[in-house]
């Protein structure tokens, strides 16, 4: 699911730091974004926009972090509003609800592990590509 690959060029120290920060940003935002999943996305988006004129290595990793947050937004939001409708609305808890919440927890935990791993590797200047997100980032982000 995660593979270490050779990048087009050897990133400099300052690039590695910024690229690594893009992952950390999405991770830190999870704490603030727990009640509202859109906060993670906004935080990562702001970081991406502030680095959109950065070097290719930085942009590439900001984009990979942003895309991963994008895909988690709908599933996390659905879980959030489902929970709200149970607390404040007429819905009641069901096996379906619990299985959905556990499924998104599993996926979020896996994503967090991948994010921490990638942040550490990227900080060392090692290029890490995620399955699907890597291909999509290559498609969107050009040198």
């Amino acid at each position: 699911m995660i593979s270490v690959k050779r990048f087009n060029y050897e990133p400099a120290e300052h690039e590695a730091e910024k690229a690594s920060n893009s992952y950390l940003m999405s991770l830190i935002a999870i704490i603030a974004g727990l009640p509202l999943p859109i906060i993670n996305l906004i935080a990562t988006l702001i970081f991406y926009l502030s680095n959109r004129k950065g070097t290719f290595f930085v942009r590439w990793h900001c984009m990979q972090a942003l895309l991963s947050q994008f895909s988690f937004l709908p599933i996390n939001s659905y879980g959030f509003w489902w929970t709200m409708s149970i607390i404040f609305g007429p819905e009641s808890v069901s096996n379906n609800f619990f299985s959905y919440i556990i499924a998104i927890l599993i996926f979020n935990i896996l994503e967090s592990i991948a994010t921490i791993y990638t942040a550490i590797k990227t900080r060392k200047g090692i290029h890490v590509e995620w399955w699907f997100y890597g291909s999509l980032t290559h498609f969107i982000c050009k040198p």
Binding site: I75, N95, N96, F98, S99, F107
Partner: peptide, 18 residues
């Protein structure tokens, strides 16, 4: 990825969490 998520959800829904 979408299929993997749906399969996980479906498999988990077979458990009686209540």
């Amino acid at each position: 990825i979408i299929a993997l998520f749906l399969v996980t959800w479906f498999a988990l829904s077979k458990v009686d969490w209540i």
